[in-house]
Design a protein around this nucleic acid. Structure first.
Lengths: 217, 217
DNA sequence: TTTAATAAATGAACGACGGTCATTTAATAG
DNA sequence: CTATTAAATGACCGTCGTTCATTTATTAAA
């Protein structure tokens, strides 16, 4: 769990400590959310001091970018593992929803990736992250192509588009919880009408039909 | 332009000053973006001092929420004004894209609305904003229903869904500009493949076809 | 075994941030 | 002309992400 030595001098030691920090960040994120993860709090949970964090990550956002990369890898692995041959279009859309929203880190990080995280990250880190993204999209698309009988280009377009859709529908889940607040009926009905799952599944299905039909007009 | 008196004592004076601050915020937003609009900078541009801002807005985010409401109103008005009878499905999707992304404030604010802005706003302000949202969606949907020959329920679903799609596709536009940076070809191609307009128009069209077909499976 | 070289870890300090509030003072009513 | 009021002020607060001179655990050399 913890490092035997107090100083990480070898490369293995360093990557071990780096991962320690990431693990603490993942746990903390689930408890207090993105904005709640301050550098001071993260450092204390990781058992180091603030300055030490900056030996392992250039900025606070680089921590989140690394967390995002790992969550994307988990997500794509889980998706591919749960794909079953002959799965219906709808079942696949639902699986993708469950895997993406079930991870706990992937959706809130993806939703902040381009608007926030990427704005305080080195070009190198950004490029590495994008390369990993390309790789995971390729893996997911290949598995999807086989299951749904699409060609690879269709599957890539499908998966990329669903990534876009996930960010859109995630809005409702990332809005402040009004649990226990005195919300008028008309407003509550409006909020309910944006429940992420039905919107995602229905429209993922519509998009898939369009791709199958080969529309380009 | 500016208030004759140095103190705003009447209700008209107060709402005038409030709007002055909002105008300064809109201008500043276009220049420096969301994160660049600090309370101190906004105050100086509006010709007041920091503390004064808090007489007119409870928090920094309430400024952005008011800005969002006004941008949504502008947007829906422009959309309805430019609708023409007999417009094709595709033309309407393109018009909606142009109007939404052309405003300059609407898209970046909508993209941050639920994830950031609504988290630091009073319940009253939030409810008022949602009521305005409901009203504008109703107006846009009614005009769309007429133009496209949809019933009102279909049109409302269509417009709500396109709002979700806008937030998703906006990611690419809100990412940091890598203009002048040394970006490898594969990464540049990836970024280009997420250009917001074609993704929006193509998929808005697919969604519309699905709604027209009356899919619910 | 002792010493010198190294770089990992520290924590005090920085400027900028959003937000507060006792005080000042412009405008109004008597 | 005076008393009342509340709009405007600006000094101040705690917190934030980030930096860096200093300390010290670890390793290599003597």
């Amino acid at each position: 769990m913890t490092l035997a030595k107090k100083r990480a001098r070898s490369l293995e030691d360093k990557s071990f400590r780096r991962q320690q920090i990431l693990d603490a960040a993942a746990t903390l994120f689930q408890e207090v959310g993105y904005e709640g993860v301050s550098v001071a709090l993260l450092a204390s949970k990781a058992g180091v001091v603030k300055g030490t964090l900056y030996l392992y990550f250039k900025t606070r956002e680089e921590v989140f970018l690394a967390l995002y990369d790992q969550s994307l890898n988990r997500m794509s692995e889980a998706f591919i593992a749960q794909l079953t041959p002959g799965m219906s279009d709808r079942a696949l859309c639902e699986l993708l929803y469950e895997v993406a929203f079930g991870d706990g880190l992937y959706v809130p990080l993806q939703a902040r990736l381009e608007k926030v995280i990427e704005h305080n990250v080195s070009l190198d880190s950004l490029i590495n992250s994008k390369r990993n993204f390309l790789k995971q999209v390729g893996r997911i698309a290949a598995a999807t192509a086989t299951t749904l009988g699409l060609d690879q280009a269709q599957a890539i377009e499908f998966i990329k588009t669903l990534g876009v859709l996930i960010v859109g529908v995630a809005g409702a889940d990332l809005a402040p919880s009004l649990e226990g607040e005195d919300v008028p009926d008309d407003i509550q009905a409006l909020l309910d009408s944006f429940a992420s799952k039905p919107i995602f599944v229905t429209n993922a299905h519509r998009i898939l039909r369009g791709i199958r039909a080969g529309d380009s007009d």
